[in-house]
Design a protein around this nucleic acid. Structure first.
Length: 266
DNA sequence: CAAACTCCCTGTTAGC
DNA sequence: TGCTAACAGGGAGTTT
């Protein structure tokens, strides 16, 4: 499932082919992908505009348009963006297609239909709802610690909350907790400053490694390109790479959560 | 107010 | 073997 590293990988892949291109046509094959906007409205707001930039915020891909507006893309579980010839055969799960002036086409393909490809006039409200970027130079660990100190939620739920830290999903939350040897059910306010530092250092290192590897290959057909290999996620019952004991699996915040009962103590 | 639950979807897999 | 049920999961919206 696309999380920060996978979204970053997609953004980088489509940036060059898109920036500077003009949108001359568009079509929508699954209406709900637009998040409630009517197709004719979407087309009116998008067609004729030029792509200014492609960036990432949390798990969103932001395509800025000139003279105004943004295409905000969320891949959710199974979404992907590709740029190909407008004459290329249509993908089975194609949801939105944006035809460019050079005969190429930006396509949003999304098997499970959870993804969103929406037009927004501005992105300030989106930005305001999202927490810190873990890889930003300005990442404020003390601000995060202050937030943890006031919460009785478990640490895994905090990591998954995009309002707290932006971009971590289930896989990288699980991996970060394991590397920092923090139990996923540790109550946020009981986590020491030292432990939180270790946890976020692990998270940042893992995210960087995963970006370098172009994401994680889960072998389930959802995300095939990445070379990052999880140490804990998806390995329930298999030996822990620290101590050799079997990895356990529980549910935390409605998500499957693998951890080592020996290495990660509360 | 914070925290937890529900819903949206389809492909894959476990279980009978 | 062939079927069904369970599972996977991010975030918006709703309920506790």
């Amino acid at each position: 499932m696309p999380e920060l590293p996978e979204v970053e990988t997609v953004a980088r892949r489509v940036r060059d082919p898109l920036v500077g291109r003009k949108i001359c046509a568009s079509r929508v094959l699954w209406q709900r992908t637009l998040g409630g906007m009517k197709e004719y409205e979407f087309r009116r707001l998008v067609e004729g505009k030029r792509v200014v930039s492609v960036s990432r915020r949390a798990k969103y891909i932001i395509i800025a348009l000139n003279p105004a507006g943004f295409l905000v893309v969320h891949l959710r579980m199974s979404g992907d963006l590709i740029v190909c010839s407008e004459r290329a055969p249509l993908e089975k799960h194609l949801r939105v297609a944006i035809t460019l002036s050079n005969g190429r086409e930006l396509r949003f393909v999304d098997t499970r239909k959870f993804g969103r490809f929406v037009y927004c006039d501005e992105i300030d409200t989106l930005d305001a709802r999202l927490g810190q970027e873990p890889l930003d130079e300005s990442f404020d660990i003390e601000g995060l610690y202050a937030r943890f100190k006031t919460s009785r939620r478990v640490v895994k739920a905090m990591l998954l909350d995009q309002e707290v830290v932006a971009g971590l999903g289930n896989i990288y939350a699980v991996e970060s907790l394991w590397r920092a040897r923090v139990h996923p059910l540790t109550v946020a306010q009981s986590l020491s400053r030292k432990k939180l530092h270790a946890l976020m250092e692990a998270a940042r290192d893992i995210l960087k490694e995963a970006i370098s590897a172009q994401g994680t290959d889960l072998g389930d057909g959802v995300w095939k390109t990445g070379g990052f290999v999880p140490m804990t996620y998806g390995r329930a019952g298999e030996p822990c790479h620290h101590c050799g004991r079997a990895i356990k699996k529980i549910r935390v915040a409605q998500r499957g959560t693998e951890y080592c009962g020996s290495c990660q103590r509360r």
